[in-house]
């Protein structure tokens, strides 16, 4: 079992150590192994959280909570899928809980220009993602959450409905409205090559 793939373009970290082929429950008390798992998962966790929440300010706080939930849940990981996919669901749930309990949405001034101006020294794919989240930041968070879970994480409508305690039709509506709004927002950028259309 190879639990962790080395990240080829990791910004902050070198390739992580290959984890031992052991049952997860066996390494739940091993600090070194937990550190390796957390280190490997962190970039993906932060990326998913940033897809889900508005602005950059709270990403690391939510990432701490989510990563802690993942590590504490390791004994329940049944290895039926990849560790990453399993962790994604946990991260999404923690983020959803955080979104529900926090105060009314703050408005940030991040826009597409800000993102590109700030990050102009980074790779193009990074900029593309930043432009996308700048657009997502303009959506209601229910629509955003549904869109990200469906199109980024790859959950089905049924799975999203289950996770968010919403009706199937509600999730479908959120997806439809969110996609339409996103397309409208992306329209001006697509002429500049900012975002591709479906």
């Amino acid at each position: 079992m190879t639990l962790v793939k080395a990240s080829p373009a990791s910004w902050a970290l070198p390739s992580g150590p290959e984890l031992p082929r052991v049952a997860p429950v066996a390494f739940c008390d091993d600090r070194e192994t937990l550190t390796a798992i957390a280190t490997q998962l962190l970039p993906r966790v932060r990326n998913l959280i940033r897809y889900l929440i508005h602005g950059d300010q709270d990403v690391d706080d939510v990432a701490q909570e989510a990563l802690l939930a993942v590590l504490r849940g390791l004994p329940t990981f049944r290895q039926e899928g990849s560790l990453e996919s399993w962790a994604d669901r946990i991260v999404a749930r923690v983020t959803f809980t955080w979104l529900r309990r926090r105060k009314p949405q703050r408005q940030f001034s991040l826009d597409v220009e800000d993102a590109s101006a700030d990050d102009c020294t980074l790779p193009d794919e990074y900029l593309r993602r930043r432009r996308l989240v700048a657009l997502l930041d303009q959506l209601p968070h229910e629509q955003r959450y549904a869109l990200v879970l469906h199109h980024v994480v790859g959950l089905s409508v049924e799975e999203i409905a289950l996770d968010t305690a919403a009706k199937l039709e509600t999730v479908r509506t959120r997806l439809r409205l969110g996609k339409r709004r996103l397309r409208e927002l992306a329209e001006p950028l697509s002429t500049e090559g900012g975002l591709a259309h479906e």
């Binding site: 990326n47 990403v59 794919e125 990074y126 900029l127 930043r130 996308l132 199109h151 996103l182």
Partner: peptide
Amino acid sequence: RRPRTFPGLDADLGPARPLS
């Protein structure tokens, strides 16, 4: 299922800002 508008979810750079 993923529209072309959405990049994948991975451990590469973005959309979260780089962390030292």
